[in-house]
Design a protein around this nucleic acid. Structure first.
Lengths: 218, 218, 218, 218
DNA sequence: GATGAATGAGATTTCATTCAT
DNA sequence: AATGAATGAAATCTCATTCAT
């Protein structure tokens, strides 16, 4: 399924072919186990051309992360129904998220697994994208708290922790859904929505779970 | 901090020193970037000895995964208060989990990041441990459903998804807590407990979030 | 300081621009470390054009050697005062030599360092030029011997060695002067003239230094 | 003539074999054109062993320069007859110098050609050795001036230039003698001694060559 | 007359792994 | 029980050189 070997293409096109190949190889083999030879071959070009256009393995991987991050956030942004109530916004966002990760499993592997596992500068690159998503969710949680007339609002660190947990759950479910045949993006979104929104709803209305006081270890 | 170079130690001790070093290096550098040279040096032994005892890099990494997985599940098992109600069982289990991951960040990195990023056979190895934890949580959710006299019980796939989400959230929070100074194991556990148990509680009492029907994409 | 990029120039001009660039790069980096890319860029043309005009890296370097050799010998020839006594001929030649090498350090580097360091066919190419200069000096020494009515004349091999020593000293002084701020061409010439002409003069009048006879090794 | 392939030798021995091979290849091919493959093969070992012991091509070349420089200065030092008058000291030093360069043509090529042609840090490395020799010659010239009761002494810069010229002539003669069959070390030394000592002698006794005043260019 | 697109071949360097003692 | 000596194989990257337009 490597790109058909057509000669003399404009640079922009070739670059995309290379990134396609690189995302696939990086996503499946991992950053270090991927070889530039294999990527070049899958892209249907010679190795020197990959270096001419993308400079180094590190730069190539960074370019992959950036492209996939941009694609994912764009997909989520496009999927979120503007002007809807908070729960519907979260629902549509999650649908878009799971749909995109299901359609681009290698891209998701690059972003979620590879970029975070191979040190700087990749970690920061991926963290930037994640921060954007966490911020989006954090806003939603805050809006939900307001809509629930919760007073006083939740403490900031608590909100941060909740958003982190929610995003973490979504990430895990995305990977799980990709690995479990028969689980659709819709089901993944529904499961998480059910779990998360009910939990948030309970929190909002003040029904929190209180840890027992007699504990001794920190 | 490499082990002090003492000659002629019993095999079992030497092996543990090697595994200590290996977990540290693998956890920090990643499987591929780790070099057997560095591991041997940190362990205070010569490279051939590492090979004599642990056979190959692959076997060494597998041994690391197994040891760390066993340590983590043992810690959780030991932490769970037997004979308590379901919520207290979850709470104590989470406390133990976060405490262990915080105390063994390299081990956690090996299990959660490295083992999952570098293909077979490591993925399966880590998956085995994870399955055990997911099973534990699944049982708890089922018990909670029973305790809530929920009838009919939740469908099996739904329970699986919920457990997956909960475990995923826990894993994310563990990594987040390790990377965020000032977040204690107790706080991480409380955040997740708050979030999750309320959500489960709502679910049990039938207050689910229903996705809108007019959606078209799967 | 690369040539301004103007389109459609006559071939001869373009070739000179390329040689200018090549001499600079070869002189500073050395033959092997110089890259055709860099040379083409400095010349303000595309690489294929360089190949179209100059054929190959080897041919390009050879062309550089020839051009710089021709320029140097021309400068010396032009500088030598015809019709003067031998000492003044040498003096004016040296002045011209040191002036030229000071004004064209990259060319001098190409001739004296690079051409001699990178094997055939460059060595021969540079040797041809050097032979011309050595011959010139040899003639001067012979003339001086005749003017001094020295009889019998110096043996041929002796003359060759003297010329070789004189030229070698001049070459070293040229490089030394280029590398030592504050040393002018005139000073270099005066130093060498002082040293050499007195030595020659002494030789001519028969005051030679006789090696001790009791030596045993050849 | 590569070293006989004997297995398992102590490190120090192997290192010398590698340096022998490296000096030969570097001296004949030049630094850049030399390949580590070729060096390893000539040394009778595998490439990784070369890297294990000598670190990198750059380090290997530096080690060659150092070893050859040390050998050359040691030979000269050993050859100089202590307690002799200045002329005999120079004579014995030159004999030793030409004998050594004739016996180690590759080493001489490394020192005189390659080290000076391939930029830092090699240039400095070779310059250090050269400075030692120049200092030795400078001292001799100064002693000669004193012995000749010359008063006032020669100006310092003049002495520097003379020493530079003398050393340069010696270097050129060494290369010339290596390239010209039938020229012995003794002859080379005699030629230079004749030329240089007479010249110095004339200088000492005040018979300098005075440049014409009417010159215009600097 | 001039160039953007493309590559074959080979460079240095690293690493997991094994002998021989 | 333990190791200094050694290597096969493969990685990233660079460069001189040529097509096709």
């Amino acid at each position: 399924m490597g790109a058909v070997k057509t000669k003399r293409m404009p640079r922009a096109v070739r670059e995309q072919q290379m990134l396609d190949a690189a995302v696939r190889i990086f996503g499946q083999r991992g950053y270090m186990a991927a070889s530039m030879d294999e990527i070049a071959e899958l892209a249907g070009v010679s190795k020197p051309l990959v270096y001419l256009y993308l400079n180094s393995k590190e730069d190539l991987f960074t370019a992959c992360i950036r492209r996939e991050a941009a694609a994912l956030t764009a997909a989520v942004r496009a999927g979120v129904g503007q002007g809807l109530p908070a729960d519907r916004r979260l629902w549509t966002g999650l649908r878009a998220f799971f749909a995109h990760t299901a359609e681009h499993p290698d891209g998701w592997s690059v972003l979620h697994l590879q970029a975070r596992t191979h040190g700087e500068p990749f970690v920061s690159e991926a963290a930037a994208m994640r921060a954007e998503i966490v911020a989006f969710v954090t806003r939603l949680v805050a809006v939900a708290a307001r809509e629930a007339h919760r007073d006083p609002g939740l403490p900031e660190r608590e909100v941060a922790g909740l958003a982190e947990a929610l995003v973490g759950a979504a990430e895990s479910l995305a990977t799980w859904a990709n690995a479990t045949p028969g689980v659709t993006a819709r089901q993944a979104a529904a499961t998480l929505m059910d779990f998360a929104w009910s939990g948030l709803g309970s929190l909002m209305s003040g029904r929190t779970w209180t840890p027992p006081a007699e504990d001794e270890t920190p």
